[in-house]
């Protein structure tokens, strides 16, 4: 048995050691991770994917901790990918999400938590998170939660990996207009006002609930009325209702064209990420080194035109070959 198949089988068998190491390889963009991911693909697609996003300090990690407890109580195994930002100055990162989550999962082999630093790579993070989710999915986790700060395009791309996106807001964040301004309500499938025990929670909740947020389906089918809930993650209030709402959304999208469109989008993202990686590493770097680059725009234009032309000819040649064979 070769190393790739062996690693894949270890992950599928639930080895935390192999899963942990594979995720590191994914983060580092090492090429052999792609081969293992390919072997894992047949074991993916069973997990329910939940995204948890919201502004810093909204209580996302504490809420995830409460979700873990609730889901474990219902007999479901849980994987978590928690993303925290890397420092744009040193490249280092302080990953603090795990600290708040572990209370609910200590010594429980049904829970796997992994922190990822954003590393500031453009677009690369969402691809890495997407693959890391696959690893936990292949490990056999029933639910995989992706937690990320809900600010900026890259973070949106991560949240989009999930079947259901839970937006965590808190009292004092501002009125409903602030929420809409930030654009974050457009990504939410379920809105939860956390810290419901603190002053102003009721008003924030009422304001958001009165907005009647809706998400329109990809096929123009029935829209999803976004439920607005109240919870106190710290006191474990409203968490059962939150899990029920997430499950309801999951069933809803499963019945409609939402899910198919979502799966297709993830496949598409994988194709683009894989192709992009290899093109950059095996083609672009060398091509750039081999050129004088006095006119980088022109050189890039010429290079891409050549590539497209070569691909066109290859496709035509293959088509001709297939025709001759048929005759």
């Amino acid at each position: 048995m070769d190393a790739t198949t062996d690693q894949a089988e270890q992950v599928v068998a639930g080895s935390a050691l192999h899963a942990g190491r594979l995720i590191t390889r994914i983060e580092n963009g090492r090429a052999d991770a792609r081969a293992v991911l390919r072997s894992l693909a047949p074991h993916c697609g069973k997990a329910q994917l939940i995204g948890v996003t919201g502004p810093p300090g909204a209580g996302k990690s504490t809420l995830v901790s409460a979700l873990i407890r609730e889901l474990r109580g219902r007999g479901r195994t849980v994987g978590v990918i928690a993303v925290d930002p890397s420092s744009p100055f040193s490249g280092g990162a302080l990953l603090g999400d795990r600290d708040r989550m572990v209370e609910s999962s200590s010594g429980d082999s049904g829970v796997f938590i992994r922190s990822l630093a954003s590393r500031g790579a453009s677009g690369g993070l969402a691809a890495a998170a997407n693959d890391a989710v696959d690893v936990l999915d292949a490990m056999g986790k029933d639910v995989v939660i992706v937690e990320t700060v809900g600010v900026g395009q890259g973070e949106f791309d991560i949240a989009r990996i999930a079947h259901t996106v839970v937006l965590v807001l808190v009292p004092g964040y501002g009125d409903a207009l602030q929420a809409m301004k930030a654009g974050i309500t457009e990504i939410a499938d379920v809105v939860v006002v956390n810290k419901s025990d603190s002053p102003g929670a009721e008003q924030t909740f009422k304001e958001l609930a009165a907005q009647g947020f809706q998400r329109t389906g990809p096929d123009g089918g029935p829209p999803w009325p976004v439920p607005v809930l109240q919870a106190s993650a710290l006191r474990h209030d409203g968490i059962a209702e939150l899990v029920d709402a997430v499950d309801e959304h999951h069933r809803f999208t499963g019945r409609t064209a939402w899910r198919t469109a979502h799966e297709h989008a993830r496949r598409r993202a994988r194709f683009i990420a894989f192709a992009n990686d290899r093109l950059r590493e095996e083609l672009l770097e060398t091509a750039a080194d081999a050129r004088a680059l006095t006119d980088p725009y022109g050189a890039a234009e010429e290079f891409v035109t050549e590539l497209i032309e070569a691909h066109r000819r290859l496709t035509a040649h293959r088509a001709a070959g297939a025709e001759t064979e048929q005759k």
């Binding site: 990953l95 010594g107 938590i113």
Partner: peptide, 25 residues
């Protein structure tokens, strides 16, 4: 962090939790 490392800050109850966290991370 300032030296460019990724630091998982983590408070443990029992020692097993450290090993488990080290493994998963």
């Amino acid at each position: 962090r300032d030296a460019g490392m990724e630091v998982v800050y983590f408070r443990f109850g029992v020692v097993e939790e450290i090993a488990e966290a080290a493994l998963q991370e």
